[in-house]
Structure formats: C-alpha cells, structure tokens
Design a protein around this nucleic acid. Structure first.
Lengths: 243, 243
DNA sequence: CCGAAAGTCAAACATCCGTTTGAATCGGAC
DNA sequence: GTCCGATTCAAACGGATGTTTGACTTTCGG
C-alpha cells in the first residue's frame, strides 16, 4: 500500500509519550523531537541554514537521518520551528525592561536594557545558540521568518527609543532613532564581529573584552555621555564648539 | 595521454595576453579572469561562499563552467583571490585618514574616519560588493583568509585608537579600545542589520536612514559627545553622578 | 604553413545533500 | 498473546554542486 505518508505529524500533542524507540540506548529516552531542535539550534547557529546539514543535526541528536522529515516536514520547517523556540526562550528570559519598575530612572533603564541585550547574545547559559541564531537571522534573513523576528525586535526597539527620548528630550525623532541604533549597534558589534575581535584583542589577558559587566558598563556610560552632550548642545540655541 | 593537468595556472603573468578565445563574441574580448573575479565578488557578496555556485558565477561572467577551475584551482581559491582583490581595492580608495593632514584636529580625524568607514560599505560606487564581501568575512570568517583581512583591519583599528586617545587622553587602555569598538560598532551596524533596519524604518520617507551625510554626522557627534563626557568624568577625582 | 600552447566548450563524473521508502521494532490496549 | 499505531532504521532516490575530461578552437612563434 503506497500510503503517501504526508508527514504524520505525531497526532497533536506528542508529549504524552515519554517512551523511547530503543530500549538499550539510555539517552534515547529523552524526547527525540526536543533533541532535534536542540541539535538543530546549535548547527544552524554555528553554520547557518544552508551549510548546516540534516545528517549532522541528526547525528548530534543521536537520531536517524529520517527523523527530521518525520517530526518536521522539511529542513526548512525544522529551521522555522527552531527559530520559534529560540524566540520564545529569548522572550521568557531577558525581558526588555530587565525586571525594572516602570518609574525607574531612564539611566537605570538604559543600563538594564544594555545588560539584557548583551546577556542575550554573549553566551548566557548552556544553550547559548539562541542569540546567535536570532542575530544570524538579522544579518541574512530567510523569507517570511523575519516577520516573526520583527514582532520581537520592533517592540524592543520602541522601548529603547522611549528610554532615549527621556534621556534627550530635545532631539528630533530621526536623531532619537539613530541614537537607539547607536546603542544597539555597539552591543551587537561584539556579537557580529566576535571572532575578529577575539583576534584583535588576542594579546589581552585571559579575560577577553567580552566580560558582561565591563561591556555593560562601557556601553552604558558611553551612550549616557553621548546623550547628555547631544541634549545640552540641542538645548543651547547655537550648537557651539566642543569646548 | 592522461597528463594530470594540475591547474595550468596560465604561466606566471597572464596580463601579456590581450586576446580573446572567441572572435565572434565581442564582450569576450575582456579578460575572462577579471570578469570571473568581478562576477564572483557579486555572487559571494550576495549569497556567501557556500550558497554561491560556480555555475552562477560563470554564467554571470559569460564564461564556461570549467573556467573557474582553469583560471583558479578551486572555488575556494577563487574566493580567496576575490577577497584579496576587494581588500586591495578597499585600501586604494577609502584611505584610513580620509586624506587629512597628520596634524589635523582629532575631531576632524574622527569624522573623516567615520565617513570613510561608512562610505566603504554603504554602496559606494558601482561595484559595491567589496565592502559587503569583507564584512561578510568579518561575521563568518573562512579559515586563514581572515589573516589577510586582519592586516587591513588591525592598522585601521590602531589608527582609530590613536584618534580616541587624543580625544580622551585620561582613559585607560581597555576603555580606549572599547571606545574605538563603539565607533566601529555603530557604523557597522547599518551594514550588518541592513535589511532589518530597512523594515524597522519602513514608515520613513523615501530617503532611508542610510544617507551617508546624516549617518556620518550622527555617529561622529554621538561619539564625540561620549568621549567628551567620559574624559571629563575621568579627570574629576571621584566619578560623580550624571548631573 | 605548422605545431604547440592557451583557451573554450559540452558532457560526464564523483560527491554530497534533502528526502523517501519499506521493513523492522517498540509499547501499550484488548 | 495479538494486533495497531507510533517510532526507528538502513538503504536508496533524485537533484544539485564542484570538478574533471577530452575534443575543439584560437593564437602565435618558428
């Protein structure tokens, strides 16, 4: 019987099956689907969508080659699902406000934002691939998926713009957005050019310049000073010389 | 006769041959090798190393599929050669100092640096792929080639650090390097997250926020204000509060 | 002219990839 | 125990890619 086998998609909720397919293999007791997503995340984050191979993902997950097409339809659906997972995870941990109160001073809010943003990418916990995956999607977006990302990025950007507006209320709208981009750009830089920076700073001591506290402090102070100066120049009628 | 044909590598200098291989084809009079590099640059910059296909490159160059393996050994050597070409081109145009005199004020030097850096990437001239290729190499470096890039990046970074040191002489070395990274990060941001930014700012008028003059002005002022503030805080004995 | 080298070309080769297939295996319900 | 659906498995399929091959064409020195 041919039976098209159009991606069975294990009914609806397959969480009810805590079972394994192999009795002898102890680690196979974990959910294959979850292991696949975890493995896919690392592979996709490390090599990108095109260069990551289904075989490599399955091998890392300890699953058969056909597992990807069984649990997900394609490699692309697996990628989408992995991205969704990363997005959800990133949203749960690392909230925009960093757990600050609404009426907190803008300076503290900026510091919390920067710290959360940095922590999101600079190897936060074990997984570590969530941030890399998302930022990779920023650099070279795959069709339509970026729309999902946008839903996470746009509110974050808006929140940052609100903070900036409080720090430098005299700035015009385009300057505020540019200022927000400057903050994000600084933070993102250490992620995008990670490998290059590591080589540039190679003569540094063991602690790379990737220390979360140091970077948070620097970027926050740098940006606060910048907004301070821009605001004072904007309020004075004629933007005088530096001195 | 089998004749291994180990990549003939057209003797040593093949510039002495101004000839074509096809008399009827007019555009084939141009150097096939040069056309290949040009086509490869656009393809590599647009799709990355892995996703760019030799067939696509040859088709764009109007050459046969075997041309890549004839003039270069592999796809990888072609990539390396293309990268070298981009590096050389980028070094000729867009000099570090932006054509400024040695004794120019640090503020002007910073502005010139930022402008040259931005212009290098933000679609400067017709080719346009040089900057994209190099920055792609920064994000996901291919082995060993980055060493060549470093030879172009490290002096540029050192030059920027020298400028920053003049702007804020009281800062410690690590803070100076972090400040330089902040400047570069801001500029690079508009290149890395190009597509994402375009969507974020989509409600903006026709002129995207990618205007060279606007960006140069913003990043320069932002950074100058930042260094100013950092310096004044560093000189005062106790780094007081923001106000 | 001739003959070797440089260059071009269509076709094929080898390899890898994503995906499909059909059988084997497992767990649990009856 | 027996059957059924869910799951795993090895093998193969079809396509795309980088590369090679061998013949053909052009060029130019002698």
């Amino acid at each position: 019987m041919p039976k098209p086998r159009t991606h069975p998609r294990p009914t609806t909720q397959r969480a009810a099956k805590p079972l394994s397919g192999r009795a002898s293999d102890p680690e196979s007791s974990a959910d294959t689907r979850a292991r696949l997503i975890e493995a896919a995340g690392e592979e996709f984050a490390a090599h990108g969508f095109a260069e990551a191979t289904v075989r490599g993902i399955c091998e890392r997950a300890g699953a058969n080659i056909a597992a990807v097409n069984y649990y997900f339809r394609d490699k692309e659906t697996l990628y989408l699902e992995t991205l969704r997972h990363a997005h959800r995870y990133s949203l749960e941990h690392y909230p925009h406000d960093g757990g600050l109160k609404e009426d907190a001073p803008a300076e503290d809010k900026l510091r919390a934002f920067v710290r959360a943003f940095l922590a999101k990418m600079l190897d936060p916990n074990r997984p570590g691939w969530h941030g890399r995956l998302i930022s990779r999607e920023m650099t070279e977006p795959t069709p339509a998926l970026t729309l999902l990302i946008e839903e996470g990025v746009r509110p974050q950007f808006a929140a940052l713009c609100a903070i900036v507006r409080k720090l430098a209320p005299s700035l015009k709208a385009d300057r505020i957005e540019a200022g927000a981009a400057s903050v994000i750009g600084q933070a993102l830089h250490y992620h995008h050019c990670n490998s290059l920076i590591k080589r540039l700073y190679s003569e540094r001591v063991d602690g790379f310049p990737f220390d979360l506290d140091f970077l948070t402090d620097h970027i926050t102070q740098f940006s606060l000073s910048a907004f301070e100066g821009l605001e004072s120049k904007a309020t004075s009628r004629r933007p005088g010389r530096t001195s």
